[in-house]
Amino acid sequence: MTAPGTTVADAVPGAGAGTPLLEVRDLRVTFSSRGRRPVKAVDGVSLDVAAGSTVGIVGESGSGKSVTSLAALGLLGKRGVSISGSVRFDGEDLLGMPEAELRALRGREIAMVFQDPMSSLNPVLSVGRQITEILERHRGLKGQDARDRAAELLVSVGIGDAVRRLKSYPHQLSGGMRQRVMIAMALACEPRLLIADEPTTALDVTISAQILELLRELVVGSQTALVLITHDLGVVAGLCDQVHVMYSGRIVESAPRRPLFADPQHPYTTGLLASVPRLDQARGVPLLPIPGSPSDTLPWAEGCAFAPRCSRQVPECLGAPPALLPARGAAGGPHLVRCVNPVQDGS
């Protein structure tokens, strides 16, 4: 056991051989506003994303998963935000990069798809204009060339009658169509990294399945790496090579997809799994929600943030933060867990 106050160095989730495409080290984001206590939204996240891979970041609202990606891209604004740590993209430091260079990188090398396609498209610009402007900016395509390419992109995301659709405005399209447009926009410059932040949360179940299928077709197996941020383990199950589970600003468990679902070890991960409805479950068996809410946390400095909600709490949980260490049965492997009393098989 570690003495209180000291920290064991965390292992880096997702690390493999060679230079990763995206390398996040000890990222911390604190929001402060006058008259309120500062909020640590991201509290020491490290992770690697290999080129062409598909990575899921899972957690409840408020776990810091979106803030991680926004901070990495410099999209959080400056007022009341302090960011430390390092984010490297293809070896280049994104956090210290001059604004103009970062702008040139965003949209071209790293693209994002956001949660709510209703509000993420500009209501007064035609869909075509919103796609051509990014082609103009990063590819130098103008006029008819840009419109032709935009129409191709719409076809590639499954929007028929593309030439006519370019003239449509966002309010004339359904939610699913709008998210397809967002994806077309994000993939317009064939970025090396696509970050999809809850891309299906605002959509109907059937539409959501179509969008995930589209992401799978266009991204998975392509040169583009995908970071999929979601609160839904079901979404991750179908798509991701590697999954990071976040709680209260830190990664608490990290594993390739199979071990994560077959042998989840952090009580929070098992809690998330138990609260997902499954078709093969007997009828009438109630879902098991995780008790409490994400606001019942402990500051990591005082122990495990999940301890107040955890059914497996032991005295060692309090005092010092648990480190992210190789999980049982995965010595040195890619399965890591941050728990002093991990879930045993079958319990």
């Binding site: 949209g107 071209r108 994002m112 900016r137 926009m185």
Partner: peptide, 8 residues
């Protein structure tokens, strides 16, 4: 934010 993410 979308426009920012597009690098405009």
């Amino acid at each position: 934010r979308t426009a920012e993410a597009k690098g405009m």
